[in-house]
């Protein structure tokens, strides 16, 4: 077998093989196309579509959940705000009540104090007046008693006159 002959048979396509390859290939193409590629490709496509759908629905579920969560947070925040407002109001009311009570009690106390002071003054005045009267009557009594004792005898009358006379300067 010489190399030129080999090379010739290597690059010379044989009619028989061309014939059988054509038939086999066409049959293979038709049969595989109908019984293999069509169902396989459609199955893969269906699966991919399924996966895509699942992913999309998961995505939308996630979105819904996120929305729900944000809604919840909003509601929570609102509730918190409301609670704060309520608390604040309560505190304000409490303070107002306390302030009012304080003011009321203060004024009552002031009033009581004032009336007490007035009463005290009145009592004091009355007492002072009474005391004055008593002192006056006492003084008169004393004075009477003193006069009585001073003027009980002649010597005493004379001594008094003398005494008085001593004080009088004889100028």
């Amino acid at each position: 077998m010489t190399s030129t002959f080999i090379l010739a048979s290597l690059i010379e396509p044989s009619v028989g093989l061309i014939f059988w390859t054509t038939i086999t290939f066409v049959l293979l193409l038709i049969l595989l196309g109908k019984f293999a590629w069509k169902p396989i490709l459609s199955a893969i496509k269906t699966r991919e579509k399924g996966i895509e759908d699942a992913l999309a629905s998961a995505e939308s579920a996630l979105k819904d959940m996120r929305e729900l969560k944000s809604n919840n947070e909003k509601i929570l925040a609102e509730a918190r705000n409301e609670r704060d407002a309520l608390l604040k109001e309560a505190r304000d009311t409490k303070e107002a009540i306390i302030a009012e009570a304080k003011a009321k009690s203060q004024s009552e106390a002031d009033r009581i104090l004032a009336s007490a002071r007035e009463q005290i003054i009145n009592e004091k005045n009355a007492a002072v007046a009474e005391l004055k009267n008593q002192v006056a009557s006492l003084s008169i009594e004393i004075a009477e008693k003193i006069l009585r004792s001073e003027l009980s005898s002649d010597e005493k009358q004379k001594a008094l006159v003398n005494n008085l006379m001593k004080d009088v300067n004889l100028n």
Partner: peptide
């Protein structure tokens, strides 16, 4: 004119059946 089922044709048929 040779349409024999040669070694290559046999393998081709075999591989075609296997692929199927």
């Amino acid at each position: 004119l040779d349409f024999s089922i040669t070694k290559n044709v046999t393998q081709m048929l075999f591989s075609a059946i296997l692929l199927l």
